[in-house]
């Protein structure tokens, strides 16, 4: 399946992907409106910065996802594209998936609130917004 990959050679640490990710998760069509309610990244992607190395991290949509195995409420499932998605009406915010994810790719939405994770922009015609708006082609969406 096509996944989002990051090449740290070209990642600038501008963090734009994080903001487009928040926009993608919102239902808004005008970019600034997505942040009206005080929404802040990270959501599905997070840029790690360390001593001049920058690297955006997001869900690997593993072959055998530990998060999905650990989910106590059945909120996590695979959609038809293969992406591991969260049903926010079912998620109880127990954070088991966060503890189980070996990549640290799942983000807390707050105590007892649904978690946030990459769903490969299922709500945006599966066009990952982090990829579309990366200014330096550091994030790509392709087959492994």
């Amino acid at each position: 399946m096509k996944r989002v990959y990051v090449n740290e050679e070209w990642c600038l640490g501008c963090h734009l992907c994080e903001y487009w990710c928040v926009f993608s998760a919102s239902k808004e069509t005008h970019f600034p409106f997505a942040f009206d309610g005080g929404a802040k990244p990270p959501a599905g992607i997070r840029v790690e910065d360390y001593k001049g190395i920058n690297f955006a991290v997001n869900c690997r949509h593993c072959e055998d996802p530990l998060c999905l195995k650990g989910c106590i409420s059945g909120a996590l499932s695979r959609d038809e594209s293969g992406a591991v998605c969260v049903d926010k009406t079912k998620c109880v915010g127990c954070h088991t998936c966060i503890a189980m994810c070996p990549y640290g790719a799942i983000v807390s939405g707050g105590d007892n609130m649904p978690i946030k994770k990459c769903q490969l922009c299922a709500s945006r015609d599966h066009v990952p917004q982090c990829v579309a708006h990366c200014p330096n082609n550091a994030i790509v969406f392709e087959e492994e």
Binding site: L12, G13, C14, H15, L16, E18, Y19, F31, P32, F35
Partner: peptide, 13 residues
């Protein structure tokens, strides 16, 4: 200021 979301990309870049 009505549009700025304080993402600070301007600061970083």
């Amino acid at each position: 200021k009505d549009l700025c979301i304080k993402c600070k990309v301007c600061v970083r870049q």
